[in-house]
């Protein structure tokens, strides 16, 4: 059981966040706080690298949806990168992959922000 960890850096106009561990009711406020900070700073394009994410619950998914909704109103978005198969299957069944873009290639994911 890994602790939840957030690492972020700017990649051009995109905020690149690497998540590891479990995103549940306990840990999601930390991500939500980070996303709120980005939003207040006018950084509305966020790419979340989920390669090392072990688990995501509805509280975490809700935080992602909440940011994506606000970001889109400002011309930005929140997209997912490298979602592990086990998590992808679950969020696909729940319909989240229809409202959040999921990428497997970092360059293509970063490029997609300037095209949208």
């Amino acid at each position: 059981m890994k602790d939840f960890h957030i690492d972020h850096q700017s990649r051009g106009a995109v905020q690149f966040i690497r998540l590891s561990g479990s995103l549940d009711m306990y840990s999601f406020p930390r991500l939500e706080t980070q996303l709120n900070t980005f939003f207040q700073q006018g950084r509305h394009a966020v790419l979340l690298d989920c390669k090392d994410l072990d688990y995501i619950g509805s509280a975490g998914l809700g935080a992602l949806i909440g940011f994506a909704k606000l970001a889109r109103e400002q011309g930005g978005d929140l997209k997912l990168l490298n979602v592990p198969d086990r998590i992808f299957k679950i969020i696909e069944l729940l319909g989240f992959t229809k409202v959040l873009q999921v990428h497997n290639n970092e360059t293509a994911a970063l490029d997609s922000f300037s095209k949208s």
Binding site: S58, G62, I65, K69, L94, G95, K98, V99
Partner: peptide, 12 residues
């Protein structure tokens, strides 16, 4: 799926 489509942030 309906809640996600409507961009609900909770109640799942």
């Amino acid at each position: 799926q309906t809640r996600a489509q409507d961009m609900h942030t909770g109640g799942y």
